Simulated scan of single mutants.
Amino acid sequence: METDHYFYVLHCKDDTFYGGYTTDPARRLKEHNSGTGAKYTRLSSRLPAEMIHIEKFSSRSDATKAEYAFKKLTRKQKMAYLKKKSSNKSS
Rank of each mutant, 00 (worst) to 15 (best):
M1Q: 10
E2D: 12
T3D: 03
D4A: 12
D4G: 09
Y6P: 06
Y6Q: 07
Y8V: 04
L10A: 03
L10V: 10
L10W: 00
L10F: 12
L10Y: 03
D15S: 14
T16G: 01
T16W: 01
T16I: 01
T16F: 01
F17C: 08
G19M: 00
T23V: 14
P25M: 01
A26K: 15
A26S: 12
A26I: 13
R27H: 13
L29G: 08
L29F: 03
L29E: 06
K30T: 10
K30P: 03
E31K: 07
N33F: 02
N33M: 12
N33T: 09
S34N: 15
T36S: 12
T36M: 10
G37V: 01
K39D: 07
Y40Q: 12
Y40L: 11
T41V: 11
T41R: 06
T41W: 00
T41D: 08
T41H: 02
R42N: 00
R42G: 09
S45Q: 06
L47R: 11
A49K: 00
E50H: 13
M51C: 04
M51P: 08
M51A: 04
I52N: 00
H53Y: 08
I54A: 06
F57G: 04
S58E: 10
R60F: 08
R60I: 02
S61Y: 12
D62W: 01
D62E: 15
D62H: 02
A63R: 01
T64C: 08
A66Q: 05
A66W: 02
E67Q: 09
F70L: 12
F70C: 05
K72E: 07
K72L: 09
K72D: 06
L73Q: 15
T74N: 09
K76F: 11
Q77K: 14
K78G: 10
K78V: 08
M79C: 11
A80Y: 01
A80R: 14
L82Y: 03
K83Q: 14
K83E: 15
K83S: 13
K85Y: 12
N88A: 14
K89Y: 11
K89L: 14
S90E: 15
S91T: 11
